[in-house]
Simulated scan of single mutants.
Amino acid sequence: MFQNPPDDERAKLLAEAKNVAVVGMSDNPDRTSYMIAEAMKQAGYRIFPVNPNLKGTVLGEKPYGSLTEIEEPIDIVNIFRRSEMVMPVVEDAVKIKARSIWMQEGVINEEAARLAEQNGLQVVMNRCIKVDHAILLGKKSGR
């Protein structure tokens, strides 16, 4: 049974991360993926919107059709997809050698989590990255 990393490990991941790919990101400011990505950008992360349906820039960033199109190292792959759609995202994250997978609250895929861990990626599942960032780092980190 999958268990999320303890608070100190998640805090370390968030403190050290720079590039966050947001898979399933919307360009609609009313959508959760947009709001959370915007908050993470304001916290100092570089956001890489990943959604093949995005046409123009989102939060000032060029969108990508898939993770494999991104040419820069990705620290966190933040997933806003239905649980049953996670495996292909994790497979791409393994291909690009991302550092970690972060499945948003409500996104649960044990098989995908196992695949990621077997390939050396840190996995956080069924947790909101924005909430964890606020609780674990707050104002003390400069992020």
Rank of each mutant, 00 (worst) to 15 (best):
V23C: 05
K62Y: 02
R46G: 02
P63S: 03
Y34V: 00
D27A: 11
G65H: 11
T57F: 15
Q42L: 10
P29L: 12
D30K: 15
A39Q: 12
L54M: 06
P29F: 10
I76H: 12
D27E: 10
I74Y: 02
D92M: 01
N19H: 15
Q42M: 11
P52Y: 10
M85R: 10
F48C: 04
M35E: 14
I74D: 02
E38N: 11
Y64F: 14
Y34H: 06
N78R: 06
L67D: 09
E91A: 09
K18T: 13
Y64L: 04
N19M: 11
P63F: 01
P63R: 01
M87R: 13
L67A: 09
P73C: 08
Y64P: 04
E61Q: 15
V90G: 01
P88Y: 12
D27H: 07
V90Q: 02
P88Q: 12
M35Q: 15
M25G: 03
V20G: 11
G24P: 01
N28Y: 09
T57M: 12
V22P: 01
E84H: 10
V94H: 00
K41N: 06
M85Y: 12
P88F: 15
M85W: 11
N51T: 01
I70S: 10
R81S: 06
A37Y: 01
G56P: 03
M25H: 02
P73H: 14
L67Y: 13
P88N: 11
R46K: 14
G60I: 05
S33R: 06
D27G: 08
V86I: 09
E16Y: 11
T68S: 14
T68D: 13
Y45H: 09
R31V: 09
T68Q: 14
V77R: 00
I76F: 07
Y34N: 00
S66M: 03
V22A: 00
M85G: 05
D92W: 03
E71F: 05
P73F: 06
E16K: 15
L54E: 05
P73W: 15
V77I: 09
A39N: 09
Y34S: 01
A21G: 10
E71H: 11
V94C: 08
G24Y: 01
V89K: 03
Q42Y: 07
P52D: 05
